[in-house]
Design a protein around this nucleic acid. Structure first.
Length: 358
DNA sequence: AACGCGGGGGC
DNA sequence: GCCCCAGCGTT
């Protein structure tokens, strides 16, 4: 029996029942695939339901405000996915007459849709014979064939893409693609794979040679850097001073409190002597520390954050021309990053009664 | 070819 | 603490 047939037989019996597998609607499949990029199924699931309900058809998605999309996306990470989805939905309206493309060649033109996602959309919705190559597929193939070429080298990507295409069941690409990913997620897991109970125990090169734990090989990335954020909570009546982050850094277009960043952890007195602090606040400002320093780990940086309350809003120098902060009444309506919304959840008492926190 | 981009979970 | 997750876009 071929690899593909054994795999699909396994899938029929052990595969997961996932909501986006019951449709051939390219739009719904796209929605699920973008959400699941670098994201576990369990983590993405509630967001999938949220988005399907808010935007049942691509027209609704295209008509939404980016702010609303980001707010629905809040907490999921890699926010460029949400911004690109909005661009893609608008492109579907302008370039595809509102019909979501279901071919690889068309889908891959959409921002945020790369080789993996285009293959997923085309194979799941239209049964186009395109092999998906995601983390699961790299792992299954690397172990099955005993390939030690790094999966994140250019050479490796090419090799694995070719093998994936060779192995694909050209008659049932949709089912096959679902099957190999589920197999990677449930059976051929990164840690403690279920080799003793595996249908490929005999053919799997890694298992026969005892190399399962060594494969796949992946080149290491750079070490994380440390950043120190000092957030200021400034209230005026029931409004809180907020600002929107710009491009070229983490959390593009998301909201947060006014902030000073330093390369090192600094003392309170050094903070108050900081040029930006002097720029925005009176020298006699009283800072009240809220809680302990929070560490937020991103995949490529460690962010250490402290929060300060400034109770006297007169401390703020309001006549600056480069004013890019504004007092916001309903901060629950803003899309915020984790550092901010988890702080707000823990410090509801700091926010006035008529300002709800989500 | 390398890097930046979140947040969560397994071990 | 390290690795991985239904990756993609930019440089």
């Amino acid at each position: 029996m071929s690899f593909a047939v054994k795999l699909m037989n396994w899938y029929r019996e052990k595969g997961r029942d996932l909501p986006w597998r019951t449709t051939h609607d390219a739009y719904i499949i796209w929605l699920s695939e973008i959400i699941l990029q670098q994201t576990r199924v369990e983590q993405g699931m509630p967001y999938f339901h949220r988005f399907v309900e808010a935007f049942p058809i691509v027209t609704k998605f295209a008509q939404a405000d980016e702010e609303d999309i980001l707010r629905l996306w809040q907490g999921l990470g890699y926010y460029s996915r949400a911004r690109n989805m909005h661009k893609a939905a608008k492109m579907v309206m302008s370039d595809f007459q509102g019909t979501f493309p279901n071919t690889y060649g068309e889908a891959i033109r959409l921002p945020g849709v790369g080789e993996y996602t285009a293959a997923a959309i085309a194979s799941f919705s239209a049964n186009e014979p395109r092999a998906v190559v995601d983390g699961n597929v790299y792992r299954v193939l690397a172990r099955y064939f005993g390939i030690n070429e790094p999966i994140n080298s250019i050479q490796g990507k090419r090799i694995f893409a070719e093998i994936a295409h060779d192995m694909l069941d050209k008659r049932n690409p949709g089912i096959y693609n679902q099957a190999i990913m589920d197999f990677g997620a449930l059976q051929c897991k990164p840690k403690n794979p279920l080799c003793e109970d595996c249908i490929f125990r005999v053919e799997c090169v890694a298992f026969q040679k005892g190399l399962v734990d060594m494969l796949p090989v992946k080149l290491k990335g750079k070490v994380s850097r440390n950043r120190y954020f000092h957030y200021f909570i400034v209230k005026e009546d029931d409004k809180i001073l907020m600002s929107k982050r710009g491009q070229g850094d983490v959390w593009t277009n998301l909201y947060e409190f006014p902030m000073i960043e330093t390369a090192e952890d600094i003392s309170l007195s050094d903070l108050m002597a900081h040029a930006d602090f002097v720029h925005y606040f009176d020298e006699n400002t009283v800072l009240e520390v809220v809680g302990k320093q929070i560490k937020q780990v991103l995949s490529h940086q460690n962010i250490y954050a402290r929060f300060f309350i400034i109770r006297d809003s007169r401390a703020l120098k309001k006549k600056k021309k480069d004013w890019n902060y504004y007092f916001c009444e309903k901060i629950d309506k803003l899309a915020k990053h984790k550092l901010i919304f988890s702080f707000l959840e823990k410090n509801v008492h700091l926010i006035s009664a008529n300002t709800s926190v989500k």
